[in-house]
């Protein structure tokens, strides 16, 4: 059975299975609506900065769906690689190709309120989770590490060859991107 709030469910003195299933179903609909709604926002939005923010929300929703399917490692990778890396890259692309967008951008009162509300919600969830998890008297390795350990063994065992190939691909892309940037600069100097 899906236990999305695994930490909370484990430590809230044995929540009944029905309630957990209900929470999981509700969270699925929340994250699915977030992902799909933000995807529609990406498609229809005229402001390219707003589009990038919509993509961020869609990525967060997908990460929540991963959590619901017990792919915690993927959810973390999604947040780190996409929300942390690719989205910053996209913002840089937007900044390099569009000067006027940022001049027009002023945070409205509604956006300030929504942002503060989101931060407050996140803080509440984090504090509740930490308080309920009983981290103080718990060894770090005693958690639910089995799945991630198995995933690591699979990545470096059965899938070792594609794993190495993909690292070669990353190297090639790194060289290619550096070549693109460098070649353009030389051309610019020649003009």
């Amino acid at each position: 059975m899906n236990t999305t709030l695994a930490i909370l469910a484990q430590n809230s003195a044995g929540a009944p299975d029905g309630a957990t299933a209900l929470i999981n179903t509700a969270l699925f609909y929340v994250f699915a609506a977030m992902a799909v709604g933000s995807a529609i926002g990406v498609m229809v939005s005229r402001n390219i900065v707003r589009t990038a923010v919509c993509l961020l929300m869609a990525l967060l929703g997908v990460a929540g769906l991963y959590l619901g399917m017990h792919a915690e490692f993927l959810a973390a990778v999604q947040l780190v690689v996409y929300a942390g890396g690719t989205l910053v890259l996209i913002i840089f692309g937007v900044m390099l190709t569009n000067n006027s967008t940022f001049q027009l951008y002023r945070p409205k009162r509604l956006e300030v309120v929504v942002g503060s509300g989101l931060v407050a919600m996140l803080a509440t969830v984090l504090i509740t989770a930490i308080l309920r998890s009983g981290m103080a008297d718990r060894v770090v390795t005693s958690g639910n590490t089995y799945a991630i350990q198995t995933l690591g063994e699979a990545l470096l065992g059965d899938y070792l060859v594609p794993f190495e190939l993909i690292s070669v691909l990353l190297l090639a892309v790194m060289i290619g991107a550096a070549y693109l940037a460098k070649g353009r600069r030389r051309e610019g100097e020649g003009q």
């Binding site: 993927l74 999604q78 890259l89 190709t97 993909i166 691909l169 991107a177």
Partner: peptide, 28 residues
């Protein structure tokens, strides 16, 4: 399940590589 997770990790890596190259090309 672990096969699918490994597959998605590979997809994510390819997507990240594509993002780096595509955005570089777009800027050019």
């Amino acid at each position: 399940f672990f096969a699918s997770q490994a597959f998605v990790i590979f997809v994510l890596v390819v997507a990240a590589a594509e993002a780096a190259l595509a955005l570089g090309l777009v800027v050019l």
